[in-house]
Design a protein around this nucleic acid. Sequence first.
DNA 1: AAGTTTCG
DNA 2: TAGT
Length: 204
Amino acid sequence: MNVLPKGVRHIPGHLGRREQEDLVEDVRSVVRAAPLFQPVMPRSGKPLSVKMTNCGELGWVADRSGYRYQARHPDSGEVWPPIPERLLKLWKEVSGHDAPPEACLVNFYSETAKMGLHQDRDEEDFTAPVVSVSLGDDCLFRVGERDRDGRTTSIKLRSGDVVILGGEGRLSFHGVDRIYPSTSTLLKNGGRINLTLRRVTKPA
DNA sequence: AAGTTTCG
DNA sequence: TAGT
């Protein structure tokens, strides 16, 4: 019986179809304002397979210089568009955290995209959880513990699912091993969108 | 360093 | 630029 690591919560089907469609509209408008860019590995410049953008006061970027949060789009130099209301509402529903999210990373996975096992650790504040929303095709999500060599568990994430990494689970290693093409009709061109809401700065 | 590969 |  494979249980999720402590502090990792999976809420299958948290969002209904209509809410998912509304969120896709929100994402479309974010992408219009802040076009997807191709993140690359620090130093090597090797591209990640996902495309990404952000909304919120801060956005996560990856380039040859490193990983960091910044207030502006790396290509356009524009500030990121605001986090859509319905994501702020979702955060209030599930995060158990008073302060609103400062960053929402938008990752787009093509049929072949993956994300290696990693920690979300570029934030200054680990007291707030990470809240993530899946839209579109199913994926195989793998989650472990705070140490890279800890036990890992794989679960299938479907469109409308929410995953929360909080408390002991805040620094859990996690990644996406594969996308299951054509498993959702939410996105016309297929693929998967992941939205990740985070606090970045230290609490006052 | 959030890659890839391999493994679990 | 994750519908035309």
